[in-house]
């Protein structure tokens, strides 16, 4: 059973790394942010599986904290860092879709 869980965790980690391509490719800032948010959900699943693999129930707490705070980075992006093309230059490659 533990090998099975470990294999699933490995598979999900590989998923995460593939999603990094979206951070690199963009094209808009929101797309990059989405990939970072994916790290939240998949990270929770990986932690839950690792808790089983390593027989370390404390990792469930880590997953809980992860899930609890997953939204903050995204909210900070939307409220503070998302450039509004109307207030600046609209030709910015970061915001052109």
């Amino acid at each position: 059973m533990q090998t099975f869980d470990a294999m699933l965790a490995l598979f999900l980690l590989a998923n995460l790394l593939v999603a990094l391509a979206r951070v690199m490719r963009g094209p808009s800032a929101a797309d990059r942010m989405l990939a970072a948010l994916l790290f939240g959900t998949v990270g929770v699943a990986v932690l839950l599986l690792l808790a089983q693999v390593q027989a370390l129930p404390a990792l469930n707490d880590v997953a809980l904290v992860f899930a609890l705070l997953a939204a903050i980075t995204g909210v900070a992006f939307v409220r503070r860092a998302w450039r509004d093309p109307r207030s600046g230059n609209s030709g910015d490659p970061d915001d052109a879709a």
């Binding site: 939240g40 809980l64 899930a67 609890l68 997953a70 939204a71 995204g74 939307v78």
Partner: peptide
């Protein structure tokens, strides 16, 4: 475990 899923759903919907 259930709370983890609920929180992920709330965060996902809001974002």
């Amino acid at each position: 475990l259930v709370m983890i899923w609920g929180l992920a759903l709330a965060a996902g919907a809001t974002l």
